[in-house]
């Protein structure tokens, strides 16, 4: 790569980089800063305080919404990852399969369809079927739109993995499932992990579908926060946002370390 141009040497590259990061992170920095403002009014700084964090963490409705979000995300991630794993196995190890391209497109389709359309369609379908359990509705819908996000990294990892390993396992007398469990799965684990993380984040973040399908008692965190904003921004909202930012950072770091570790072994 020594002959390739290093982008950093272009004039103005430094400036553009700084503007970009400022544009990306300035709003977040402001939110974090204001979450420690003692005053109820966002625009007036009257001193440092942790009271909005106290308020947020003792807010029952907020904690309920968080619980709903986590439950839906964990269950939907599990389902989506399992479906994606099966799909990736079949699609990348069966070159002669009929309708292979078509199947792959079908798996990835939710990425391309506008979410609002799918959400409305789901709402209508669920009503028609008389399917009214809010939590179950959320889980079904989330599993569906999370699947392609879980699928892509698993598929990529699977295609990057030489088929020799699986054949070596079979050559050494491993029955198909043993070969999968002891060789294929450990080797694609970084991809599975990345896919699950992505699915989890997408589910936690979802607003449109959750807002349409939620019933009383199954308000997710984004839906709850949106409700708060309608009543005007408060420092409590800033505190909640700051907590979410740090939670995301911790999860992302954890994921990065884990996947780096398994990459090194793989």
């Amino acid at each position: 790569m020594s002959t390739a141009h290093n982008v950093r040497h272009y004039p103005g590259a430094g400036l553009v980089t700084w503007v970009f990061f400022l544009w990306l992170y300035a709003p977040i920095a402001v939110v974090i800063w204001l979450s420690f403002n003692e005053n109820r009014l966002v625009s007036v700084w009257t001193g440092f305080s942790m009271k909005w964090y106290e308020a947020a963490l003792s807010n029952r409705a907020l904690l309920d919404a968080l619980r709903v979000s986590l439950t839906v995300a964990v269950v939907a991630t599990t389902i989506a990852t399992l479906v994606a794993l099966s799909a990736a196995m079949v699609l990348s190890r069966n070159e002669t399969m009929r309708f292979r391209r078509l199947s792959e497109t079908v798996v990835n389709l939710p990425l391309l369809l506008p979410e609002i359309v799918v959400a409305v369609a789901s709402l209508i379908l669920f009503s028609q079927l008389g399917f009214s359990n809010g939590m179950a509705r959320l889980i079904v819908a989330h599993s569906a739109f999370c699947t392609p996000f879980a699928f892509l990294p698993i598929r990529a990892r699977m295609q990057g993995m030489s088929r020799d390993y699986e054949e070596a396992a079979k050559d050494l007398y491993a029955a198909p499932f043993t070969a999968f469990r002891r060789v294929t799965l450990p080797l694609i684990l970084p991809g599975v992990f990345a896919g699950a993380m992505l699915a989890f984040v997408i589910s936690m973040d979802d607003f449109i579908t959750s807002n349409l399908l939620a019933t009383g008692g199954t308000t997710t965190l984004p839906v709850y926060i949106f409700g708060l904003i309608k009543q005007g921004t408060t420092p409590e909202l800033n505190a909640i946002s700051t907590l979410l930012i740090f939670a995301s950072l911790i999860i992302a770091t954890f994921a990065l370390v884990l996947s780096a570790r398994s990459m090194r072994r793989g």
């Binding site: 030489s162 020799d164 390993y165 054949e167 070596a168 396992a169 079979k170 050559d171 050494l172 007398y173 491993a174 029955a175 198909p176 070969a179 060789v183 450990p186 080797l187 072994r265 793989g266």
Partner: peptide, 20 residues
Amino acid sequence: LPAHKRHVNTVFQSYALFPH
């Protein structure tokens, strides 16, 4: 007879040692 039931072993060109 599937591969895993044949009493034959292979030294692969890529060696294919299990990295984990």
